[in-house]
Nucleic acid binder design. Structure first.
Lengths: 206, 206
DNA sequence: ACCACTATTTCCCTTTCGTCCAATAGCCTC
DNA sequence: GAGGCTATTGGACGAAAGGGAAATAGTGGT
């Protein structure tokens, strides 16, 4: 469970600002990368590590809002902090409704930037942890055979072995075997834990 | 499980706008009430029914943002839609970060208003349902005696009756009694359901 | 001190669970 | 067709769960 250090992405067509931000973040101990446009950012493969995105709104080509929308469509939860030189209420509201962490106007105050950065990285950490947990769960259930899955469903529904055997048309002895197998596969030691797993799974799926 | 019809609250010092909104909402079949100021709104006891708040930002006295902050401090989750005549990015961002559903600039377009209204009422309904569910759960657990609660904790931890009896210094038969009692009180029919309840409770408490 | 009441305990019985060993049936690969 | 593999089954045994009946604390009220 090693947690790589965060990587801050900066997308802004103003090179002097990019350089200034890179220097500021670097001095604060952050690793950061700059991109001159939405296209430049999307061309790079996004490494799978913690981080966030400092994003200009108005740029030649696709806007920052376009990039944010694209990331969301891709299911990429990378937290976004907008930086803009234009006071545009409609854009700020749209950005925030789309889940932006913050929407800062240039010139950006150092403190405001770091405060937003901290919240963005905290959100990212939370999201990544939840996502990994969800993936572990999904993988564990994907490893079950259809029969085991059926037995699982009936166990958590409160049915006893005899009822399950009856419903599935198999011997009670077999139910016991599959029951033991799925408990091993899901790495649980009691029916109560099984119920908790079921609840967490339901919470993921809805 | 009757769901009362929603009630829309309008807080704005501009009486003509209030009247217009009341008429507009009334024509759309909504029940709505107007308030000339933050103070007027807070003076009225807030009925416990679905609804949302259409809130002006700038008013004589406490601002709309102040009211929003006060509601949040009180733990009141009433969804807020801001209406403002001033283009103020900082205010809009602050409002959205504080959880506002939308931040609309006057003159408000009819469609934008109803779209926001719909999302606000949907959010309110979701929140209210989750809150009621949480309260039911809390009430059920509050009805358990300390002993029953202790037994519950150990059951969901996967301990068997003998271990529980040993740990609590009581007879195994007594554990079985309390176990049966708490299952009745929590209205569950299996240990798996017990585990699911435990997971939901943990989810509430964190 | 006495009674009502609840919590706890002891004894006993039935059902269900968890697991052992051995065996059978179906299916894929070589 | 000979393995080799998985799913399934049967019988059996000890442990655990669920519950009935009656005895035994302990408590608080009178």
């Amino acid at each position: 469970m090693s947690t790589p250090s965060p990587l801050i992405h900066i997308v802004d067509d103003d090179e002097s600002l990019r350089v200034a931000l890179l220097r500021l973040l670097g001095a604060a101990g952050f690793e950061a990368r700059g991109y001159a446009s939405t296209g430049d950012f999307l061309l790079q493969p996004l490494p799978d590590r913690p981080g966030c995105l400092l994003l200009d709104v108005r740029m030649p080509g696709p806007s920052g809002l376009d990039l944010q929308a694209a990331l969301r469509r891709q299911g990429n939860p990378l937290p976004v902090i907008f930086l803009t030189g234009y006071a545009d209420v409609a854009a700020s509201v749209r950005a925030m409704k789309a889940g932006a962490v913050d929407f800062l106007t240039k010139p950006v105050e150092r403190e405001a930037l770091f405060e937003a950065l901290q919240r963005a990285l905290a959100r990212d950490a939370t999201q990544r942890a939840a996502h990994m947990e969800a993936e572990r769960l999904r993988a564990a259930f994907a490893a079950l055979t259809p029969r085991e899955r059926a037995v699982f469903d009936r166990i958590v529904a409160g049915q006893i072995n005899k009822q399950i055997a009856d419903a599935l048309g198999i011997a009670e002895r077999t139910v016991k075997l599959q029951r033991a197998r799925l408990m091993t596969k899901l790495d649980v030691g009691s029916v109560a834990e099984l119920g908790r797993l079921a609840e967490r799974l339901r919470h993921l799926t809805d």
